[in-house]
Simulated assay, not measured.
Amino acid sequence: MPNLKQDLKQLYERDFLLWVEENLRLIKEKNYEEVDWGNLLEEIEDMGRRHLDSAVSYMAVIMEHLYKLEQFKADEKMGKGWVKSVLNSRDRLELMLKREPSLRRKLEENLSWAWEEALLNLVAWFRDNEDLAEKFFGKLPSKEDFPSECPYSFEDVLSYEPWGRSND
């Protein structure tokens, strides 16, 4: 008789959707002994991590654009897209927090991780805008040219609006 557990482990690599359906069937039938628990637990953990990663990315975009609005708005025409991006990302983030309130605590704990991602975005943006890199830094900046500590609180990410004031 074939080993169902071993077959499921192989199915996980070959046909993920079928693997999910088979494990779901086994759980519904209360056939817990045959469930591929190792991969199933890993997938459940990964689901939570994906939600957190997505929310952290929204925070990173918000911080990147807040920082650009504060520090690198070269003229009055610049920044409208950044404001729109901040507002859109906040809408998405607020929807996620409404749907998953426990995410708030995790996001507060991962603020510095979001800032790290924002720094990567800032460096990449200056690579695409060498004239601004020259104007503000005299060179292409690296992560070390920006604050290592996150300059924003979680509440700033959710509500701070620097576009309402002068950036002189």
Rank of each mutant, 00 (worst) to 15 (best):
V157W: 12
L26Y: 04
Q71R: 15
G48S: 05
R92H: 14
V123L: 02
W19E: 03
W163G: 04
W19D: 03
L103M: 04
E109G: 09
F154M: 09
K84A: 15
M63Y: 07
A114R: 03
E144T: 03
P141Y: 10
G138E: 10
N39L: 00
E70K: 13
A74G: 02
R165M: 04
Y58M: 04
E109A: 11
W37K: 10
S112M: 07
W82T: 08
D91S: 13
R99G: 01
E116V: 06
M47G: 04
G81L: 12
P101K: 04
E45C: 02
L97T: 09
A114M: 03
Y58E: 13
F136A: 01
W125E: 14
G79H: 06
S166V: 14
Q10A: 13
M63I: 11
G79A: 10
V86W: 00
S54D: 10
K139Q: 09
F154P: 05
K143H: 08
R49D: 14
Q71P: 02
N110W: 00
E130Q: 14
L97I: 13
I27Q: 01
D145P: 13
S153Q: 01
F72T: 03
Q10D: 15
L120P: 02
E43W: 03
M63F: 04
Y58N: 12
V86G: 05
L66H: 05
